[in-house]
Design a protein around this nucleic acid. Structure first.
Length: 423
RNA sequence: GGAGAGGUGUCUGAGUGGUCGAAAGAGCACGCCUGGAAAGUGUGUAUACGCCAAAAGUGUAUCGAGGGUUCGAAUCCCUCCCUCUCCGCCA
């Protein structure tokens, strides 16, 4: 959520930035400014009335105590008017605040100055490519066939017990999951992130804090009886650990990592591109989250990007880094890098990580602040990234490393899998 | 799920209608004291929104949340949420 005071003071810039994100309702900006103006006026009036009636109440108390009942009664006569006025103004103020809030949550985060204009994923900017694209023999198989061939993943069994998009991992397929999770967590800890293990369901306040609600309501599984949401990413519970928190300056940066399953309804996604592990309703992911000083957040974003890349390098996967264009960016992000690995059998890039700086967009909702050098509270910047999401990593590992003898496990992973070949 | 107790500031905890944004203690910050520290001692120590160019200052709101009674609510009433204890169930 953008800060009203910022919008008020930087109207032109806000409009210009929103245009980069291809935002369709620029008129909201002026509506917000107008509502805020009214809101402030109304509060001013209400404060004045409250001030008067507070003073009167105090006076009455004083008079009562000193036994001047008549004078007290005389003042009482005025209070009815203030009370009525105060009530009306209070209702107006509440209505204005609600309306302002409703408009405010519709405004996406402002993109950073380095974000390229554009609408479609084709307009994302390729920042770099790394690693060599493997040449596979003509009889190379896509991962879903490899998974069946080596008895690693049973998609049909998942359909039976739950539904499409909930695969059952078996044998070395299951062990590969655990190995990757442990590898990713260990690497994150080496990079200074401390591990947290968090609830997989969150309340609505948490969903709002990180921006999933009200925007992406339909993408989350909702447990109606208890009004809880299954997390779409560890970002939600981990970042919300710091909701309503004022950190001391020296507590920054906060660096957390955590593994969780992620649940996504992915309503409306069907077709060839979602075969196998390409798009699931439940998958495992290790997430890295940082809460940092605003001056540092863009350096930290580069660090996080580098960390994710180091994982891909250690796994020997060819990858590229994209700087997302305005139109392809998420609602809450100011700058996002996507990491994609090359799926050799499918002959296409698969997104395996997304690293974003949210600046104060989340912290404003979360009320996540720190005490700055002047001792004042200030909104912190939040960032997060996948490091990494498992399914597409598994897909590319299986596809790219397939040989006549079986699938070669990357060296860095062998200490975790305790086997070198899937055969 | 049943019964009971309770939600006050960073923490402990007092406060049952006005002098309460809130005692006291602890913690923390700064100062004095000290060769240095401890002890002692003094001062300060919530957040948000508004007014003000801004600092200073000042107004308003906030004692789990929302509503009500009242000139006036942390305190009385109603609804909801949450926590704890005991019992039941249980990985």
């Amino acid at each position: 959520m953008l800060q009203v005071s910022y919008i008020r003071d930087n109207r032109e810039q806000v409009l210009e930035r929103l245009a980069v994100k291809n935002f369709k309702q620029p008129e909201l900006v002026d509506e917000v400014i107008g509502l805020d103006e009214k809101r402030r006026q109304t509060q001013n009036q209400l404060d004045t009335v409250s001030s008067q009636s507070n003073a009167a109440a105090k006076q009455i108390g004083e008079l009562m105590r000193t036994g001047k009942k008549d004078e007290a009664e005389a003042i009482k006569a005025n209070t009815g008017k203030w009370k009525e006025e105060g009530k009306q103004l209070g209702e107006q103020l509440a209505a204005l605040e609600a309306e302002l809030q409703d408009k405010l949550v519709l405004l996406p985060n402002l993109p950073h100055s380095s974000v390229p204009k554009g609408i479609t994923p084709e307009e994302n900017e390729v920042v770099l490519e790394n690693g060599s694209i493997p040449e596979l023999p003509a009889n190379a198989l896509p991962h879903w066939e490899l998974a069946a061939k080596y008895n690693l993943i049973d998609f049909e069994l998942g359909v039976k017990i739950t539904g499409a998009g909930f695969p059952v991992y078996k044998n070395k397929g299951a062990k590969l999951q655990r190995a990757l999770i442990n590898f990713f967590i260990d690497e994150a800890e080496k990079a200074g992130y401390s591990e947290v293990s968090v609830p997989l369901m969150v309340n609505a306040a948490s969903g709002f804090g990180t921006g999933q609600l009200p925007d992406k309501e339909g993408q989350m599984y909702h447990v109606g009886v208890d009004d809880l949401y299954l997390i779409p990413t560890a970002e939600v519970p981990v970042t919300n650990l710091y909701r309503d928190v004022i950190l001391k300056g020296e507590e920054l940066p906060v660096k957390n990592c955590g593994h969780t399953p992620c649940f996504r309804r992915e309503a409306g996604s069907y077709g060839a591109h979602v075969r196998g592990l390409n798009r699931l309703h439940q998958f495992d992911k290790v997430e890295i989250v940082q809460v940092v000083h605003p001056d540092k957040s863009y350096d930290v974003l580069e660090d996080m990007s580098a960390h994710v890349q180091s994982l891909l390098q250690k796994l020997g996967l060819p990858y590229r880094v994209l700087r997302l264009c305005g139109g392809d960016m998420g609602f809450t992000s100011a700058l996002t890098y996507d990491m994609e690995t090359w799926s050799a059998a499918q002959q296409r890039w698969l997104e395996v990580s997304s690293v974003s700086n949210f600046e104060t967009f989340q912290s404003n909702r979360l009320k996540l602040r720190f005490r700055n050098a002047e001792g004042k509270t200030q909104l912190a910047h939040t960032l997060n990234g996948s490091a990494l999401a498992l399914p597409r990593i598994v897909a590319t590992l299986l596809e790219n490393n397939q040989t006549d003898k079986g699938i070669k496990v990357p060296e860095a992973l062998v200490p975790y899998t305790k086997f070198e070949w899937i055969d």
